[in-house]
Structures are given as structure tokens and as C-alpha cells.
């Protein structure tokens, strides 16, 4: 797929096939177009050329909330939790794509409404318990430590029951202890849930440890792909990151 903004080609001829139950990585220097790739996959932009499909279903022309319902969930580079809403509500509102009732039923408080609210409440509480956030259920996200905010965002994305989980720089701003925690968390999610994880990050040690395959892009072009070790020793990657030494 290709994405152009006016005359600028942000991502060109990007091609990827993600396999279930695997952790894939996407790296590249600043401005390489990594987040643009994520924005394309999550339906935020429509590709100028090319197609994206999730589990065989094309996402062309779908609004982002529909793409999410198809099974793509994501986190953001800069944490985007709803800060004036409790932790529990953050999870609950993310279930909008799975509500069995509409406006009139919410006003009339019908049976469907009550059943659905009850189910969402139970599921959200269960999820918070699994990820040991239940003690913060009634707090506002801003009052959580930074590492837990990152974690909550991942849990919120996971609550969408995704087939593909996109993590956009999950390790950004974390200290080394939180980073170990994050690696454990992502591994655990990968082992426990039936989904595919795709990570963007600048922390090479995190990427090397987690990913089974990595793609490297620079100025929108794919410059290398393969296992972490292959990528690490690829001359094109070293040039992209450290610059050409023949200046």
C-alpha cells in the first residue's frame, strides 16, 4: 500500500503479512512513516493505493470504529486515555462497538439495556482484575503512575477483543523496571490471547527481545526485514540509523 499527503509520499509500496500468535515489529528513524502505517491499518487514513484486509475482510472505505469492530485495536504514541472518566469507564466506553441497545433503549431502560450494561460491567471488572488494576477502578487515569497509564491503554485496546493489536511506542517514557514489566505483559498477552501483536518502538532491546520478525522503514521505503539478528546486522539499517560514513 501507498499513502501520499499532497505531493509527499509518506509510505510507499509497503507490504506486510502478519501471522497469528506472532509478535512483529516495525522500526525506523524518526519520520520514517511508522505511525502512518498504523494510522492506515486502523482506518484513520484511507490508503492512496493498495488494500488492507483483516482476517480476509477488506477495510477499504470503513470508518475507524468499524475497522476496530473487525478486530484491529491500537494504543497511541502519546497516551490518549479519557482523563475525566474513571478507569472502569475507560474500559466500558471502549465496548461501544458491542452494545446491544441504542438511544431509546437507554432512556427506557429496557431489558436489553440492563442485560448489556450488566455484561459490560462484569467483563470490564474481570479484565481489570486479570491485569491487577482493580484497585484503581474508580480513579481517574491521570492519577495513575505513568507505567500503569501505559498498561491501562493496552488493556483498553485488548478489551476490544482484537485479532490484531497495534502498540505504538509502548515503551516510550518508561523506566527500566517498567520496561521489564511491559515485556512480560506483552509476552503474556501473546501467549494467553489468540491474536497478533505489531509493535513500533525505538528501544532496540525491547524489540529484539519480543519480536520474531522486524521490518525496517525509512522515508516510507522498506529497507530491510527479517529476524531481529538479521536486521541488526543489515548494512542498510545501520546506514539509516547512524548515517553514511562516506560523507
Amino acid at each position: 500500500m501507498t499513502q501520499q499527503f499532497g505531493g509527499l509520499t509518506a509510505v510507499s509500496d509497503f507490504n506486510v503479512r502478519l501471522k497469528n500468535n506472532r509478535i512483529a515489529g516495525l522500526i525506523g528513524p524518526n519520520g520514517a512513516g511508522k505511525t502512518t502505517v498504523f494510522n492506515l491499518v486502523s482506518g484513520f487514513y484511507q490508503p492512496t493505493r493498495g488494500t488492507i484486509s483483516v482476517c480476509g475482510k477488506p477495510t477499504a472505505g470503513l470508518k475507524p470504529h468499524k475497522v476496530t469492530a473487525l478486530g484491529v485495536a491500537r494504543t497511541f504514541q502519546n497516551i490518549r486515555l479519557w482523563n475525566q472518566m474513571s478507569v472502569l469507564d475507560n474500559i466500558k466506553v471502549a465496548q461501544h462497538g458491542w452494545l446491544d441497545y441504542g438511544f431509546f433503549q437507554s432512556v427506557m431502560r429496557t431489558r436489553a439495556y440492563r442485560d448489556c450494561e450488566e455484561r459490560i460491567d462484569r467483563e470490564a471488572k474481570d479484565l481489570l482484575e486479570i491485569f491487577e488494576l482493580e484497585n484503581y477502578a474508580n480513579d481517574y487515569p491521570t492519577n495513575l503512575p505513568y507505567g500503569l497509564q501505559r498498561k491501562l491503554e493496552i488493556v483498553r485496546a485488548l478489551s476490544e477483543k482484537p485479532k490484531l493489536l497495534l502498540l505504538d511506542e509502548p515503551a516510550a517514557g518508561l523506566n527500566s523496571k517498567d520496561m521489564r514489566e511491559l515485556i512480560r505483559l506483552v509476552r503474556w498477552i501473546n501467549e494467553t490471547y489468540d491474536l497478533c501483536i505489531w509493535i513500533i518502538d525505538h528501544h532496540m532491546d525491547v524489540m529484539m527481545e519480543l519480536c520474531s520478525e522486524i521490518k525496517v522503514i525509512d522515508f516510507g521505503q522498506t529497507i530491510a526485514e527479517g529476524t531481529p539478528d538479521e536486521v541488526r546486522n543489515d548494512p542498510a539499517v545501520i546506514t539509516a540509523y547512524l548515517g553514511d560514513d562516506n560523507i
Binding site: 470504529h65 469492530a69 486515555l81 472518566m85 466506553v93 458491542w98 476490544e160
Partner: peptide
């Protein structure tokens, strides 16, 4: 209702709301 809390979600971060399956 959870449905109506989508309104506050739009207020606080519309992009996040749309990505998190809220039909904004």
C-alpha cells in the same frame, strides 16, 4: 449509560473515541 458516556469520550478525546469503536 455506557452509550451516552460516548458523549464525554468525544469531549475528552475524539480521535481515541473513534478508534475505540465509538461511532462518533
Amino acid at each position: 449509560s455506557v452509550f451516552g458516556k460516548g458523549v464525554s469520550a468525544i469531549c475528552q478525546d475524539e480521535v481515541a473515541a473513534e478508534i475505540m469503536s465509538v461511532n462518533t
